[in-house]
Design a protein around this nucleic acid. Sequence first.
DNA 1: TAGATTGTTAATCGATTAACAATC
DNA 2: TAGATTGTTAATCGATTAACAATC
Lengths: 225, 225
Amino acid sequence: MSGRRIPDATVERLPVYLRVLHDLATTGQGTVSSEQLAEMAGVNAAKVRKDLSHLGTYGTRGVGYDVDFLSFEIASRLGLASETAVAIVGMGNLGRALANHAGFRDRGFPVSNLYDNDESKVGTEVAGHVIQHLDELGAVAKADIGIGVITTPPEVAQDVADRLVQAGVRAILNFAPIVIAVPAHVTLRKVDLTHELQVLNFYQQREGADAATQPDGSAAWLREI
Amino acid sequence: MSGRRIPDATVERLPVYLRVLHDLATTGQGTVSSEQLAEMAGVNAAKVRKDLSHLGTYGTRGVGYDVDFLSFEIASRLGLASETAVAIVGMGNLGRALANHAGFRDRGFPVSNLYDNDESKVGTEVAGHVIQHLDELGAVAKADIGIGVITTPPEVAQDVADRLVQAGVRAILNFAPIVIAVPAHVTLRKVDLTHELQVLNFYQQREGADAATQPDGSAAWLREI
DNA sequence: TAGATTGTTAATCGATTAACAATC
DNA sequence: TAGATTGTTAATCGATTAACAATC
């Protein structure tokens, strides 16, 4: 059944499936089973079928899914039929790296505007774009920026978010390591690099602790005392 | 009750709480209620108390949590008592930006090694480190690298992951837009920038559709035909 | 027809949340 | 003691998974 509301957990996996389907299309494979798609996406087959069932009944029993057709349907659901312009605010190391990241343009997210509040940077070029002053953000027509990316220091991130919202931006990707607040109609996601390292650290350490735990539940290091 | 196993969802939030607690410590605030911590972390108070209850009973009824003490306990659980060295493989735009990212060192994750397979880059310096050839990865003693970061093109990401695992690295953060496989004892996380934009695009678009949906359930655009 | 594979059901598991007794 | 706030319970919700009838 092609239910109306797609679960959040499923939405998170759609880009992964799309990526795999593109790879399959490149190799010329015409159809794919949930089994193979699952294998390549790093999930299990039941989850793939359940996820896809939320989009519609696009598979053929006994055969699988048509790679191109499924690819198109997922892209449509993700709203990738048209390009979405991206503005990056904060031209430090990360901001410049993202501005130069070819993957954005290639995947339908061309970088259209770069901003900073540092006068020495304003007017210089990065990745073919002249850096504008943050104050010019309001001059952009509402529809011109689909997604705002924040790569500023945390101290100014909330202010930048406010300005983006004021300028009509309704989707924000925040790289600044701070919790920012936006109105309900704005979609916010964050990428916190240190956060990733800390969580990795936790599981790595726990894995080690588990490995050192004996069947009787006592930790190995206790024996070394 | 300080249960042994911390739920994944809680682990994901611990770094956020830690960040907030550090900010509070900086302002000199001695104790914090679950209410305030929740507000600052962007979650609800019941979730904060539930999360913290998995670590132990560190709060005081009627008072709240001691900022420094709780901060220390969370940091301990995340394994942040000692530093964890980070190696970055792939010295493109993103790799160089991460190498220069001061936030890593400041948070206990000093960048210790940089690698690339491009001979023209090997031997040059980035952020005070000489870039080494990928082939030298195996020469690193097991304990020297705590976390490997992959910022290569997707085509070589799996090979790089294999080499990191071979070199004894047990935690990997993958920025290459491809699903990579690692042995069970290795912890893997990924950051896919395009993925983030695609998911943002989905919700932004759906938000628009929701706004255009009338109370009776019909979409607004139907009326415009 | 026989084999393959989907789409869906239902059981299970984990996460969220409100409510409140415990207690500082 | 009275007010505040935790830690825990229990209800609810959403996600995962195995199993299998439907069907190509």
